[in-house]
Computed example of a mutant assay.
Amino acid sequence: MADKIKLVLALALIGAGIAGFYILSDMALVVRVLSVLVGLGAGVAVGWQTELGQRFVAFAREAIVETKKVVWPTRKETVQSTGMVFAFVVVIAIFLWLTDKSLEWVLYDLILGWR
């Protein structure tokens, strides 16, 4: 129950920061943006204290660890793969164009005699 109250409080703080942006419309833009940032920071700080916030932080840390394990392709491998994709697209485009023109010739010239 306490976590739900904290989450509601966090959302209320974020909402208050956003509302402050509009309420302080006669103030300088820096003050208005600062109100949003303070509200967002306070909301995140309160949300961080919840069980859901702690799980999110643990998930983010695990995601960073897993990202470091990824073996990224070299520049040469990336260029080669991209070249193969472009070549495949060109071949398929030519094939589809030839198929379309062949069907057009068969249907319009041979069967229907429209030309």
Rank of each mutant, 00 (worst) to 15 (best):
A2H: 01
A2F: 01
A2V: 02
D3M: 01
I5G: 01
I5P: 02
I5D: 02
I5L: 03
I5A: 04
K6P: 02
K6R: 07
K6M: 05
L7N: 03
L7G: 02
L7K: 00
V8Y: 03
L9G: 02
A10H: 03
A10D: 03
A10G: 04
L11K: 01
L11F: 00
A12Y: 06
A12W: 06
A12K: 06
L13N: 01
G15I: 08
G15D: 07
G15R: 05
A16V: 09
I18Q: 04
A19S: 08
G20Q: 06
F21W: 09
F21D: 07
F21E: 06
Y22N: 12
I23R: 07
I23D: 07
L24H: 08
L24R: 06
S25R: 11
S25C: 06
D26K: 08
M27Y: 15
L29T: 11
V30T: 15
V30K: 12
V30L: 13
R32L: 10
L34G: 10
L34A: 15
S35K: 03
V36S: 02
V36H: 03
V36R: 02
V36K: 03
V38H: 06
G39D: 05
L40C: 00
G43W: 01
A45F: 13
A45H: 09
V46Q: 02
W48Q: 00
W48T: 00
Q49I: 03
Q49Y: 05
T50G: 00
T50Q: 00
E51S: 04
E51Q: 05
G53R: 00
Q54E: 08
Q54N: 07
R55Q: 01
F56D: 00
A58Q: 05
A58F: 03
A60N: 06
A60P: 01
R61T: 04
R61M: 04
R61L: 04
A63H: 03
T67R: 10
T67D: 09
K68F: 05
K68G: 12
K69S: 14
K69C: 07
V70Y: 07
V71P: 04
V71E: 15
V71L: 12
T74S: 15
T74V: 10
T74K: 14
R75H: 14
K76H: 10
E77I: 10
T78N: 11
T78D: 09
Q80C: 06
Q80P: 04
S81E: 14
T82Y: 11
G83M: 13
M84G: 08
V85G: 06
F86C: 09
F86K: 12
F86L: 15
F88N: 13
F88A: 15
V89A: 14
V89L: 15
V90L: 15
V90C: 11
V90S: 12
I92F: 14
I92H: 08
I94G: 09
I94E: 10
F95P: 05
W97I: 13
W97T: 14
W97P: 00
L98V: 15
L98R: 14
L98G: 07
T99W: 13
K101D: 09
K101L: 13
K101M: 11
L103Y: 15
V106H: 07
L107Y: 13
Y108K: 15
L110N: 11
L112N: 10
L112R: 13
W114T: 09
R115W: 10
